[in-house]
């Protein structure tokens, strides 16, 4: 990317961030109750999205992903993108908050991954008739379920933690 193009891009990002930081269109999403509701809904969707793929197939799976994207977007607006923005766009309180949030988010995401890996290993040991030759067969919907579970968790957990942690913010 050339310098001028990069500068234009940086200016556009800065203008967008400025608008989001100052806007009050989503004030209703920034109440304590709304933030907790959005965070809880997103946590539920992290489970619902892969289950929709695995249990009901592609169409319900895609619909669940679309709902997940909408809720994720609303969640990010409710916390003014603080979990996602570079440090240059945050003041010192927001930076400190974001750093604290990422410590917790890493632990949550690590917990999810460790839980899944342990469950998979346990299932492999318990269900496998002969561990040396047993192969795991995955369907297309199964792969999509695993992919969207990890995708949804990785992308949304920082904003979920922020919404729960920073729920005292004034409107």
């Amino acid at each position: 990317m050339s310098t001028s193009r990069k500068e234009k891009n940086d200016e556009a990002v800065a203008a967008r961030v400025e608008a989001i930081m100052a806007d009050n269109r989503f004030a209703g999403l920034r109440t304590r109750r709304a933030r907790v509701a959005l965070a809880v809904t997103m946590i539920a969707l992290i489970a619902v999205i892969p289950l929709s793929w695995v249990l009901f197939g592609s169409i319900p799976g895609i619909l669940a992903v679309v709902v997940g994207i909408v809720v994720w977007w609303l969640l990010r607006m409710s916390v003014r993108l603080i979990a996602d923005l570079p440090e240059d766009y945050l003041d010192e309180r927001q930076t400190a908050l974001r750093n604290s949030v990422y410590v917790d988010a890493y632990r949550w995401f690590g917990g999810v991954v460790v839980l899944l890996a342990s469950a998979g290993l346990l299932a492999f040991i318990v269900l496998g008739e002969d561990p040396d030759t047993w192969r795991v067969a995955l369907s297309y919907n199964g792969v999509m379920g695993i992919f969207w579970l990890l995708e949804a968790a990785a992308l949304s957990i920082p904003s979920i933690v922020l919404a729960l942690k920073d729920r005292e913010l004034p409107r």
Partner: peptide, 19 residues
């Protein structure tokens, strides 16, 4: 002072300690 207006609110309510 180049901070978000909510940060001033946090400072005024005593919910954040500034640098």
């Amino acid at each position: 002072v180049e901070v978000h207006y909510q940060t001033i609110g946090y400072l005024e309510r005593g919910e954040y300690s500034p640098s």
